[in-house]
Every structure is written in structure tokens, then in C-alpha cells.
Nucleic acid binder design. Structure first.
Lengths: 198, 198
DNA sequence: GTCTATACGCTGATAGAC
DNA sequence: GTCTATCAGCGTATAGAC
């Protein structure tokens, strides 16, 4: 979804204008604080078009969610396809997430911050979606290969990616001022070799 | 806030009934999907009472937030007051969070899951609130003492607590079936000694 | 497919009796 | 302080012309 980054509202197809506007508004004001009229206004479309294309506000949110989920999935699949070690695979996923946080903050914010269960009750929770399952599988394979400590795969996955996800939240909330990629090396070091000094 | 745990609606003071009902509804349906009438009904109070006590729905959310924040803060201060090493302090904080997740899930869910900025725009984000600052200070002291690796305190704090927070999310979302305290020991081990095998 | 105008339900909030 | 009844506004969704 390359077009979702651009802000120019006029020349692009209607669907994209709607999705772009909605993503921006949802992230900045929250799903429930945005009305269909807001989206309509910012996208320079009529309400009728919105209902024709997506069937309503929830339809927009769902389309957005599925689209971004797929993009996420492809990103992770691409990394796996390069066939690095499991550890390197985790490192690269974190690097990509950090990169996206800087360049495509809205996308990350929508996927990570939003409580989709609140307005998309039928969707499974993000953590049980394909990208997250893929991450868990990477870790599982690392355990099987002996690259990663033995233990419950949930703990391992949470331990490996938890710090990175936490930093993304902090960055999106404006607590951290430094671009995340600058922290990548130190973070990785801590994940694999522990936080104990010496 | 011990009374916030009990579910018996009748004999307790009005404020508590309102707060208890609101917490339950907010966590299970989301702030924006709950109307004042819903709270009124579940708390067995009239709408007038709600407006008298809290001035509206947002007032309830704010009271809830401040109350639980204070409780959090006291929990962490109590641990610090026991004067353990910085590492042990972190371990105990995680243990307490895990324990709360099992016994007082609503409280944890409200503090962690909810996007308070969406309906409490004047409140600072959770991560810059006193309890989280306290956690960061614990880590900072650990770095100064040489118990924790040198490095940016934000990375260190995120690395130490990120995995635990991630697991709490997974548990609250129903992805993890096992009570979190059972994972505590393994998680701690991984934090300090790294995820690398051997 | 796109638009405008309109309907209708719900929600937050108030007024005023008790 | 507590309650009931009521209001005004917003936000979703539809109807129907173009």
C-alpha cells in the first residue's frame, strides 16, 4: 500500500483517498472520535461514495486493518525468505519495525495502538494474526535449532520482541525523541546477551 | 482501592458502585461503547447521582484513572521501600504485575489496554506517569550501581519490562492460557542472562 | 458511481420535584 | 443527595436525483 503514505488528496482513486484520510484521522483522534462526515470532508468525497465503497465507518476500519495486516505479513515473509539465522531474522524484523515507525508512523500506530476489538469485534486479536504467528514460528524454529534458549515459545517471543514493541509505543507517544533505528544495535545486544552488567 | 474488586453491587457506597460498574463496563466494552445509562443501570443509581458525583462520563474515567494510578504508585513504592537490589526490585515489580493480572484483571486491563489520551486528553500518557517514571528510576539506579548494563535508560527499561508487559497483553487477550506467575522465573532468567542459548 | 438532503436513534447533559 | 422526565445535538445510515 504505497499510496497510503502520500498526503496529496486530489489525483488518486477514490478508495485510496478515503483510506488515507481515515487512517490519518483514526490515528490522530481515535476511531470513535471521528465521524463519517470528518472522513468525507478530508477525503473530498461524498458520504454516498463512502457507503458505496466500504458500507460505513466500520467497513473502512476493516479494510484498513486487513490491508495493513497483509503488508505486515509480506514484510515478514520477505525477511524469512532471505533465509538468515533465526536470531538474525528477529533482528531484521525489529529493524524493519523501527524503520517503519519513523517513515510510516501512522501505519504502525494504527496496528499497534488501536484497540481493534472495540470496533472490529469479529476480527481476531492482532497478536493471533498471521504476522505475529509468523514471528512466533521464527522463534520456535530458533529454539529447535538451538540458536535460542529452550523454553515456552510465548515467553521467548515476548522477551525478544517485547522491548522493541515497548520502545515503539514510547516513540509514538512522544516520550522518546531519538529515531528508533539509532537504538537498534544496543537493543539487540541486550536481547541476546542479557541486561546484567559484565 | 480494595472495594473495586468486589462485585456485590448493593451494600457499598454510591461512588464505589459507580466506579466498580464503570470499570467493568469500560474494560469489557470499551469506553466509547458504554453510555452513562449503561453505568447507571449496572450501578443501580440514577443518572443524577452520576453527574452529582463525577460530572459526567469523562469524570468517571478520570477518577478511575487517578485512583488506579495512585494504587500502582504505592505498590511500586512499597517494593522500593524494601530496599532490594535494583535487579531484585525489577523482578518483584514484574511479579506483582503478574499477580495483579490474575487477581485484578480489570484494573490492569484498564491501565494498560485503554487509550486514555482518546478520552482524557489532558492527562499525560501513562508511560510518563509516576509509576512508570519510578520504574525508570529503579533501572537508572541499577545502571549507576553497576548492576545493570550501561546504556540508554529508555532502552534498558523497555528491555527489562517490555517482555513482561507483552505477556500481560497476551494473557488479557486470551492468547496465553497459563497464569502468568508460572512464567515468572523463566522470564526473569531470560531478561538478565539473555535469550541466546548456551 | 457520485452527490445532496433527510430521517431517526442514541447519548450526553439538564431541570426541577422530592 | 437522589431521582425521573425531557431536551438538544450529533452521527449513522438511507433515499433518491443526477
Amino acid at each position: 500500500m504505497p499510496y497510503l503514505n502520500k498526503t496529496a488528496p486530489t489525483p488518486e482513486p477514490v478508495d485510496c483517498r478515503i483510506l488515507t484520510a481515515a487512517l490519518d484521522l483514526f490515528v490522530n483522534h481515535g476511531f470513535h472520535n471521528v465521524s463519517v462526515h470528518d472522513v468525507q470532508k478530508q477525503a473530498n468525497v461524498s458520504i454516498g461514495s463512502i457507503y458505496n465503497h466500504f458500507g460505513g465507518k466500520e467497513g473502512i476500519a476493516r479494510a484498513l486493518y486487513k490491508h495493513l495486516l497483509k503488508e505486515f505479513e509480506e514484510m515478514i515473509e520477505a525477511i524469512i525468505a532471505e533465509n538468515p539465522s533465526s536470531r538474525e531474522c528477529c533482528n531484521r524484523i525489529i529493524a524493519k519495525l523501527f524503520e517503519y515507525t519513523e517513515t510510516r508512523a501512522n501505519i504502525i500506530a494504527y496496528m499497534l495502538h488501536a484497540k481493534h476489538r472495540e470496533f472490529l469485534p469479529d476480527e481476531p486479536p492482532l497478536c493471533s494474526s498471521t504476522p505475529f504467528t509468523a514471528m512466533r514460528n521464527v522463534v520456535q524454529k530458533g529454539i529447535d535449532r538451538g540458536e535460542i534458549r529452550q523454553g515456552d515459545p510465548w515467553i521467548m517471543t515476548a522477551s525478544i520482541f517485547g522491548g522493541a514493541i515497548r520502545m515503539i509505543h514510547l516513540r509514538l507517544d512522544g516520550i522518546i525523541d531519538t529515531p528508533l533505528p539509532e537504538y537498534h544495535e544496543d537493543l539487540i545486544e541486550g536481547i541476546w546477551h542479557g541486561m546484567e552488567s559484565g
